[in-house]
Design a protein around this nucleic acid. Structure first.
Lengths: 220, 220
DNA sequence: GTCTGTGAAGAGTTTCACAGCT
DNA sequence: AGCTGTGAAACTCTTCACAGAC
């Protein structure tokens, strides 16, 4: 029972977006070649990714845009609405509430929590900020499936513990600290600073040292 | 000349954060084992990652916390200030301006651009929003090294083209569309919706089909 | 004894190349 | 002919295991 790689899932999400726009454009069939070119991957990669889940194409013709789109939606769980809890009503949290792409894919932020009692009771883009202590109760009441953490670094771990205690198993963490997942819990860390650091690494590397064409870096 | 993997660079960024907190705690030496445990990787992985850049440890003792931290800072380019341009003064853009972790690592957002003339001239957390048409001029004037895209999906590609035309080579894209990089240009795509989709995939997969313990998914 | 640095082995992912269907 | 589906090959990344330094 080979587990499917994260890379494959990420690519399926991307194919899905292309298929949606092809469908809008009225195209009926698409080949692995055409799809691959849009995403800078090989056609074989597209076919392998899809073949993890079944056989969806027709030899000689390609894939039905509409059918393939619906199939990927079912694989990724985009055919339904997910209720999402957001913890952290700061500026990043507020931005996430109004982030269109979440809603478009069926992720509805149905509750916002914060531990700052000055914020509790106030509104953020139509949602009333709730006391974090009401989390367990609201997870049940609103049938929440997923959680997003958008709090400062130092609060992130304790928020994650609270979410897990409230029964949530899937967490998307935007705090700049890597939270480790215990068994049965999935945490995805999005660290925006680390993304920038990968770019600045290249900026430095392009100019000066780069393994192979430079002497080894010496300790400071 | 083996290129260093993105995974290695990401881990270095993470080690760096641990080292900073160890240094604050006054610890002088750290072993690959201790560092590894904090990040859920193997000690061999830590040593391999570091060995890409040189030999920084002492056998029998481990690594000097302070020296290793400084060395990683130099590798990643965190020993200096980078000037960053932000395009898109919406709610995500505004959140990024006040994102502490950027400043902490030396990424200073020095200019914000938008194409909405209603916004141009207004302020966002101390920065005056500039007309996107002034981008080329400001890139030179402010010595901008990196750019962040935080505009709606449909505008992202044309913004990227503008940035590249203005001479920028490193772009962090938050718009929910994967921008492809031409040669010499590096674009990192952070798609927050795709991160959630990876979680919802697992939520679906855990319950129902999962390759191996279920019949193959049939086309819709 | 402790712990690093690294070649070799192992695991995982991507690409190749071709059989087989339309 | 055109294109998928898939074993096998190639490649990449991770882990093992041990020589060598302290």
């Amino acid at each position: 029972m080979s587990r499917i790689s994260d890379a494959t899932i990420t690519r399926l999400s991307q194919y899905y977006r292309s298929l949606a726009s092809l469908e809008e454009g009225g195209q009926e069939m698409v080949s692995s070649m055409a799809l691959a070119r849009k995403h800078g991957v090989t056609p074989a990669q597209v076919r392998k990714d899809l073949s993890c889940f079944g056989q969806f194409g027709t030899r000689g013709l390609g894939y039905s845009v509409c059918q393939l789109k619906e199939t990927i939606a079912r694989i990724l769980g985009l055919h339904r609405i997910w209720n999402v809890a957001l913890v952290g009503a700061g500026s990043l949290g507020s931005a996430l509430i109004s982030y269109k792409e979440f809603k478009r894919q069926g992720f509805h932020i149905v509750a916002v929590f914060d531990n700052d009692l000055d914020k509790v009771g106030k509104k953020r883009r139509g949602l009333t900020i709730l006391d974090i202590r009401r989390l367990p109760q609201m997870v049940k009441k609103l049938d929440i499936n997923l959680a997003i953490i958008a709090v400062p670094k130092d609060a992130a771990q304790s928020v994650a513990d609270l979410l897990i205690k409230a029964g949530l198993k899937m967490i998307l963490n935007f705090a700049p600290i890597s939270l480790k997942a215990s068994p049965g819990i999935t945490i995805r860390n999005v660290n925006m600073a680390i993304e920038l650091e990968a770019l600045s690494y290249r900026l430095v590397a392009d100019k000066s040292f780069r393994p192979g064409n430079n002497p080894q870096l010496t300790p400071v």
